[in-house]
């Protein structure tokens, strides 16, 4: 199953990359691969922008704009001008709608 092509905001700086392979470990969609001693983006369109790679890159070589994928949350974000947040009820303002 694949989503829209060329939409993901994932970026990787070959300059900063130290080839530790952490992004390969955390990616649930097998987006990265190691070529020589550097990570490369193998399959950009498989990226769902969860942000695990960027969070776990020890040298900040990976960048991605991550956020919730709920359409209603994004619509709300567009209307209010803020960042989309899931707030469809739940304990303490939190929920598990997504």
């Amino acid at each position: 199953m694949r989503y829209l092509a060329n939409a993901a905001t994932l970026g990787l700086s070959a300059e900063k990359c130290v080839g530790c392979g952490m992004c390969l470990e955390v990616c649930p969609h097998d987006v990265f691969t190691l070529e020589g001693k550097k990570a490369v983006i193998r399959d950009l369109d498989a990226c769902m922008e969860c942000g695990a790679c960027a969070k776990n890159c020890p040298v900040g070589a990976v960048s991605v704009r991550s956020g919730v994928g709920c359409a209603s949350a994004i619509i709300k974000g567009m209307l209010t001008g803020g960042e989309p947040t899931c707030d469809c009820g739940g304990k303490g303002g939190a929920d598990n709608c997504c």
């Binding site: 199953m1 989503y3 829209l4 939409a7 769902m48 994928g69 709920c70 359409a71 994004i74």
Partner: peptide, 13 residues
């Protein structure tokens, strides 16, 4: 899209 494990925010936007 909010429930799948393969859709990203940029695509939904």
């Amino acid at each position: 899209t909010g429930s799948t494990p393969f859709t990203g925010m940029s695509g939904v936007k």
